[in-house]
Design a protein around this nucleic acid. Structure first.
Lengths: 182, 182
DNA sequence: ATCAGTTTGTACCGATCGGTACAAACTGGA
DNA sequence: TCCAGTTTGTACCGATCGGTACAAACTGAT
């Protein structure tokens, strides 16, 4: 069953590019190469279920590749550095949008509210955990973790707005230094 | 001609709430209390012209209330502090979305590319100008200005995602301190 | 009061929306 | 080879999309 996973990633790109309301079934069908019959066979709940599954897959990817390593790392400092590598690759230096962030800004926020909240809350918590275990006090760790996630999201916005991936890269470089300091 | 200005602000709220694609003429008509006849009389170019005018009005508001004061201030430090006050009020502590930022993330970015680019470029430039005149070197001013705008945008995303306006307020407080320090 | 010019509501257009129905085409096990 | 069960394409549904046409209702100057 290769279809499901591949389809989800293509679905994600459609939602990323056009948002929930702009992701029409016609566009989805074109992007995935699947007709309505197949789509509704895979996702009986229609567009809402597609979006839910896409968000769940993204959430799972971040949990596996970012949050869990941050929480489990024996050398937290290296895990934080690895997170920045992963973030830079995943968001393609700001050229790729954060779908969860886009949902948070849109009118569909309430529909997917818990998924959105959990994704970001766990990101901040996992990062704060790693920062604290690398020698910071609890309050400072949480504050810095929150600021890092804020800057990642903001850097995506600004680098896309200015069409300058360098903006994203600069922000990541500065954050790496902040996280590594002391 | 009270209609035009009032209509634009109501239009802005519709675009903010639903994005360009989600802002249907039905919703726009409902929100403004105007029929299609009136809307196409005010904006012969249809939805695209409405969005262009809304972006232009927002741009004008920021130019007048933020950028110009930052560039003209005799006491740049106070102008920067005033900017944070204005930003906090305008974005209602993160409860209100930045329409230009939303457009930058969406598929309509290219259609309004120049407006989006200019809005953010002038924001960063005006802020960097004020920071430099308050005693910083040129490179540090630009870097800090960029980071401040990044954090404002990111704080809107995160505070909405977590449904915690306090996230936005904390970010603004920290940025005020960063900007005031030297 | 009249009338040109504007503003408004409404009916309507073809296209597309998300979703359903269902028969044809597949699939693997017996 | 056959057949139950799944997967697929396609036709179709009512609703809504952005946009147009146009006549009725307003407006202010004469």
């Amino acid at each position: 069953m290769t279809s499901r996973a591949e389809t989800l990633s293509k679905l994600a790109e459609v939602f990323r590019a056009h948002g929930y309301e702009g992701a029409s079934l016609a566009r989805i069908g074109r992007a995935t190469g699947l007709g309505k019959g197949s789509l509704y066979n895979l996702f009986p709940g229609g567009k809402a279920e597609m979006a839910t599954c896409v968000l769940a897959e993204i959430d799972g990817w971040f949990e596996t590749n970012l949050y869990a390593p941050l929480r489990a790392a024996e050398r937290p400092g290296e895990a934080v550095a690895a997170m920045f590598d992963a973030v830079d690759a995943y968001f393609r230096s700001g050229r790729r949008v954060c779908l969860v962030g886009v949902v948070a800004l849109g009118s569909e926020r309430d529909r997917f509210g818990e998924a959105v909240r959990s994704y970001f809350a766990r990101w901040v918590a996992a990062l704060a955990d790693a920062l604290q275990r690398s020698g910071r006090d609890a309050a400072g760790s949480t504050a810095l973790a929150e600021e890092i996630v804020v800057q990642i999201q903001g850097a995506i916005v600004l680098s896309r707005a200015l069409d300058q991936p360098a903006v994203f890269s600069r922000a990541m470089t500065a954050l790496r230094a902040r996280a590594a300091a002391d």
